[in-house]
């Protein structure tokens, strides 16, 4: 008879190995980018425009472009996403409509990012004639991060105990006032977490902005929302694959800035969540 404890030992070792196979490369990737990218980071790199066909100079326009895009996406997606989350958590009933909405959200989050790019191109760039512009890119990214914001906000709203709602309603306070003054304030940390995660996602995506906004090389800052703009992820793609003989330092530096931006947002989200859990009063 086989010894079940030896089988267990072997199985657990294999599971541990599987875990290492994921976690170690992640750590290595982050460390490599930090170490190789760090020497490239200086004030000039962060504040200068790209020069000599992007082989030297800085990445300032790309940073600014990404910030514009992210800001635009959130301005569009947060109000809609938050209200949608309120609808799902506070108003909808268990019925067919609710189920269809849920399915729609799941699909929205599953649509490949490049298909969002196509959609943005067809609707905003061509149909609405915005052209390739910050506006078109922001709206495309905004729709893309909508499911993230809806799902996390909804979870945050639903985690507010029902008893709070009952107390408020039993005092003759209206439903909207209850939501506005009791439910929302207690859900804000969760909503914030979701919003920031959405921001991070929008900052890192390349495919949706390929045809809707991204400029290959635009060594100046955008002047209006109808301008094209450079963006960090697209810039990294361009200097990695489209431009020969770019100093590896610049590539790693760009990757580091992008990674730092995205990870910083995630870190903030994690901290908010952690603080909130510790402080939670009920």
């Amino acid at each position: 008879m086989r010894n079940p404890y030896r089988t267990q030992k072997i199985a657990f070792s294999l599971l541990f190995l599987a875990t290492l196979l994921i976690v170690v490369p992640v750590g290595l990737i982050v460390i490599v980018i930090i170490f190789k990218g760090f020497p490239a980071i200086n004030w000039q790199f962060l504040s200068d425009i790209p020069r000599q066909g992007m082989r030297s100079g800085g990445i300032f326009p790309a940073i600014i472009g990404t910030l514009y895009l992210v800001a635009g996406a959130i301005i569009f997606a947060l109000p809609i996403g938050l209200l949608a989350a309120i609808y799902l958590s506070e108003y909808s009933k268990e019925n067919v409509l609710n189920r269809i909405i849920r399915l729609a959200i799941i699909n929205l989050s599953g649509v490949p990012s490049v298909v969002y790019g196509l959609f943005g191109l067809a609707l905003f760039v061509v149909f609405f004639k915005f052209g390739a512009s910050i506006l078109a890119g922001s709206l495309t990214l905004g729709i893309m991060i909508l499911p993230v914001i809806i799902t996390t906000s909804r979870e945050a709203l639903e985690s507010v105990p029902d008893s709070f709602r009952e107390v408020s309603l039993s005092l003759g306070v209206s439903k909207w006032q209850t939501i506005r003054h009791i439910v929302l304030p207690n859900a804000i940390p969760g909503i914030l977490t979701g919003t920031i995660l959405g921001l991070g996602r929008a900052a890192g995506e390349t495919a949706p902005i390929l045809f809707t906004v991204a400029a290959f090389y635009l060594p100046r800052l955008p002047k209006s929302i109808f301008d094209q703009a450079m963006a960090l992820p697209y810039h990294l793609y361009v200097i990695s694959t489209q431009v020969p003989n770019v100093d590896e330092k610049i590539r790693y530096g760009t990757a580091l800035v992008l990674l730092a931006l995205v990870l910083f947002m995630n870190l903030v989200a994690i901290i908010i969540r952690y603080q909130f859990r510790r402080r939670k009063k009920w």
Partner: peptide
């Protein structure tokens, strides 16, 4: 509901200060 008030089985204070708990309904009205 304003005219027919309710006190629940468990002490359900709202996550507000003591003053704001009492003032909550009045403020909303």
């Amino acid at each position: 509901r304003k005219r027919v008030g309710m006190v629940f089985a468990l002490p359900l204070a709202l996550p507000l200060s003591i003053f704001d708990n009492v003032a909550y309904g009045v403020r909303m009205h």
